[in-house]
Design a protein around this nucleic acid. Structure first.
Length: 425
RNA sequence: GGAGAGAUGGCCGAGAGGUCGAAGGCGGUAGACUCGAAAUCUAUUGUGGGCUUUGCGCUCACCCGGGGUUCGAAUCCCCGUCUCUCCGCCA
């Protein structure tokens, strides 16, 4: 969330940002509630001061064996007023925060204007679009023919958008997870963590999934628990309500987790194949940085994610998301889009964002600056490094052969007992 | 799932209705001593909000979280969460 004081003093800026993000939230209510709150706080604090002073007096009088009856009677009324005002304050605050929690983050000034995908700006591409000497098949055909992906049985076991991986399909997925974790821990200095896959409401609110995006989450019945939609949630919340020492920054974490998403509102989209599943695997990179270096850290994080695609020799491009395409909590986001010849499109395979202090303020993650002085909020960043299911899709489609077999990328072979090719059984 | 114990500042640990934001110790910081270091001594050392003549000057809140009792709660009562011990169950 944004700083209350900032919103108060920059109401027009915030309103303009909402428009740029096509968000129709009305800020007039904020203005009213915010000034009400300050007014009430002033009143109640004056009374509390009175009570504190009087308490001392009463204590002194009692000690001196004097009669404090009159003082006590007078305070009875003051206490009653305090109670009433406190109740009003918390009611006003509740309403105020309901609004503030729905205000998205401010985009960084390097974020392009615009409202749709079309307005995202091209950053760079790596490799060349491969030309296959035959008509490439989509991964669902390849996977089914090789009997490594079983969509029908996945649907039977659970429902649509669930898939059963078999044999080398399962092994390839596992190899990718291990490969990615090894790369990031050994070459890029990330600390591996294996977090809970279920989190509470506080954590979900900390990273910004709640309260606004409750419809996208799987909630456990009768409990305050949710299945994580990304490792960003448990990993960013590692330091929830903590004050970090300067020496702990920057700090890098990498986590493999499954991700669970309802995909509400995407009926009919990407219904075939592995692209849009209710459950998928992801290796996630999460960073905590001081504000001065967070944009450098974002570039490095992006490069770390890209390095996986480079090692797998998969052609991709990087785009800088425009205002309208930016996620709720992000200040700036780069998407990495991998080329999928079977479908003839670039598909998002990683999303790398700087959230600045938006999540840190919600989750209350601070640090002590090197220069001393007051604690400040850290900047949080994260990015997929990479979405594992989509990486498997990219491998199947880019490494497919005319006979229906699939070559295994060299860097993965050590994870698959040296196997070089997936062929029909 | 059943029974019991506990949760206090960066850490350990006092505290049991009134000058307690909280003794004491450790740690941290600054200074003294020293050629320098250690030891010793001295001082200082939480977080957030509001006001502000911007002087951390005044003030409010915070002793797991939420309610309650009271003129007054770290201290008493209720609910919840978490941790530990024992029993049961279990990968």
């Amino acid at each position: 969330m944004l700083d209350l004081k900032f919103i108060r003093n920059n109401l027009e800026t915030v309103a303009a940002m909402l428009t740029a993000r096509s968000n129709s939230l009305d800020l007039s209510e904020f203005k009213t509630l915010d000034s009400q709150r300050l007014e009430l706080l002033g009143q109640v604090e004056t009374l509390k001061n009175q009570r504190n002073t009087s308490s001392d007096t009463i204590a002194r009088m009692k000690k001196a064996k004097e009669d404090a009856g009159a003082e006590i009677t007078a305070m009875r009324d003051v206490s009653r007023q305090i109670k009433e005002l406190d109740a009003q304050v918390s009611e006003v605050e509740k309403q105020l925060y309901e609004i503030v929690y729905l205000i998205p983050n401010l985009p960084h000034n390097s974020v392009p204007q615009g409202s749709t995908e079309e307005d995202n700006s091209f950053v760079r591409e790596w490799g060349v679009k491969p030309e296959l000497p035959f008509t490439p098949a989509p991964h669902w055909d390849i996977g089914e023919k090789l009997k490594i992906l079983d969509f029908e049985r996945g649907a039977k076991i659970t429902g649509s958008r669930f898939t059963l991986y078999r044999d080398l399909g399962a092994k390839l997925e596992r190899a990718l997870i291990n490969f990615m974790l090894d790369q990031h821990t050994e070459k890029h200095d990330y600390t591996e963590v294996l977090p809970p896959f279920i989190v509470n409401q506080t954590s979900m609110t900390g990273t910004g999934q709640l309260p606004k995006f409750a419809d996208d989450l799987f909630k456990l019945e009768g409990l305050d628990y949710y299945l994580i939609p990304t490792a960003e949630v448990p990993v960013t919340n590692i330091f929830q309500n903590e004050i970090l020492e300067n020496s702990e920054l920057p700090s890098y974490f990498v986590a493999y987790t499954p991700c669970f998403r309802k995909e509400a509102g995407s009926h009919g989209r990407d219904t075939r194949g592995l692209i849009r599943q209710h459950q998928f695997n992801k290796v996630e990179l999460v960073k905590f940085s001081d504000p001065e270096n967070s944009y450098d850290e974002l570039e490095k994080l992006l490069a770390n994610a890209e390095s996986i695609l480079q090692a797998l020799n998969l052609h991709y491009r990087v785009v800088n998301l425009c205002c309208g395409d930016l996620g709720f909590s992000a200040s700036k986001t780069y998407d990495i889009e991998v080329w999928l010849p079977g479908q003839g499109v670039y598909r998002e395979i990683s999303s790398c964002s700087n959230f600045e202090d938006f999540q840190a303020r919600r989750a209350n993650i601070r640090y002590r600056p090197k220069t001393g002085g007051k604690t400040r909020f850290v900047h949080t960043l994260n990015g997929s490094g990479l979405a594992v299911g989509r990486t498997l899709v990219a491998i199947l489609e880019n490494y497919q052969q005319e006979d229906g077999s699939v070559i295994i990328p060299e860097v993965l072979r050590p994870y698959l007992k040296g196997k070089e090719k997936i062929t029909k059984q």
